[in-house]
Simulated assay, not measured.
Amino acid sequence: MRISTTIFLTDETIRPVRLAHELEQRGFAALYLPEHTHIPVSRDTPAPGGGPLARAYGRTLDPFVSLAQAAAVTTRIGLATGITLVAQHDPIALAKRAATLDFVSGGRFTLGVGFGWNVEEAADHGVHWPARRRLVRDRMALMRALWAAEPTAYEGEFDSVSASHAHPKPVRNRQPGDPLTGPRTLLGGAAGPRLFADVAAHADGWLPVGGRGLTEALPRLRRIWADAGRDPAALEVVPYAVLPSPGKLAHYRDLGIAEVVLQLPPGDDTEVLRTLDAYAQYL
């Protein structure tokens, strides 16, 4: 099992370069970074998990800039967004950014995709909240057109692009018959038929936060994945933001899960490195 990590990197935490060095030297598999462009002060959306919204949400570093720094000082660890708020991006620019990061890192990039939870943040980006899932599907399809080997046009419900020269291309060499183009893509969200249909349609797997309820959810996802004609062996399920214990990781292993993303505190060098020392037992 690969042991990866995630952290809210902010202007008050350990820096990306130091963290990337430490992860690679210690043998961790990857670094996943979340995204929030801003958090409106006047907001009605409840915080994930309830209670006050953590300070780190409003101070989060841009994940693509931070991962590019990490890519420049490492050669092995994976680099991932956990997650990118696709509805809040221009898809042509996002396709270029993702492909470039994948190219300069030698194919180490994973695009974690999410629909978002903060209504006010999305509204400032012009996102109509009830349509956000359709918008994400549409933008992912447009990006995959730009990532295709040959110039490919796309005309969608919300966005379109003419057949274009768009380089660099993502590095991943996909198998014949794979319906997707582009880097490894994991879709976040709560278990359910609508989310699982999206995973089967335009992702390489699922990024469930916390990893609870997988015993019941995995068989349902695998059925929907197979019914969509996807290769059962290709499905990836990566529990995200996990607070680990030996029993929990053994349970994931028994479910056939090959990667787990452990949550690091949004702390300074001392606090983060102390947590990495504690997590070393799982490597």
Rank of each mutant, 00 (worst) to 15 (best):
Val119Ile: 13
Ala141Val: 08
Leu249His: 03
Ala141Ile: 04
Ala217Ser: 13
Gln25Pro: 00
Gly49Met: 13
Gly49Glu: 10
Pro208Lys: 02
Lys96Asp: 13
Pro208Arg: 05
Asp44Ile: 03
Asp102Gln: 12
Ala87Tyr: 07
Arg59Phe: 11
Phe8Trp: 06
Gly229Glu: 07
Ala29Met: 02
Ala201Cys: 02
Ala93Val: 10
Ala234Lys: 04
Glu236Trp: 01
Trp129Ser: 00
Leu221Gln: 02
Thr181Lys: 08
Pro91Gln: 10
Asp138Thr: 11
Ala56Met: 03
His21Ala: 03
Ala280Trp: 05
Val119Arg: 15
Asp102His: 14
Ala98Ile: 15
Ala280Phe: 04
Val104Asp: 07
Thr270Phe: 05
Ala54Trp: 06
Ala98Thr: 11
Thr185Arg: 01
Gly107Leu: 05
Glu155Leu: 12
Ala123Asn: 09
Glu259Gly: 05
Leu235Thr: 09
Leu61Pro: 00
Gln25Ser: 08
Tyr154Leu: 11
Gly188Val: 09
Asp204Trp: 09
Asp204Glu: 01
Glu12His: 13
Arg223Tyr: 03
Gly192Thr: 01
Glu35Leu: 04
Ala72Tyr: 12
Ala153Phe: 10
Gly192Asp: 05
Val41Gln: 11
Gly49Thr: 08
Gly51Trp: 11
Arg230Cys: 01
Ala68His: 02
Leu262Thr: 03
Pro151Ile: 14
Tyr240Cys: 03
Pro34Gln: 07
Ala258Met: 04
Gly213Thr: 08
Leu262Val: 09
Leu195Gly: 00
Gly126Asn: 10
Ala145Asn: 11
Ser42Asn: 05
Val238Gly: 01
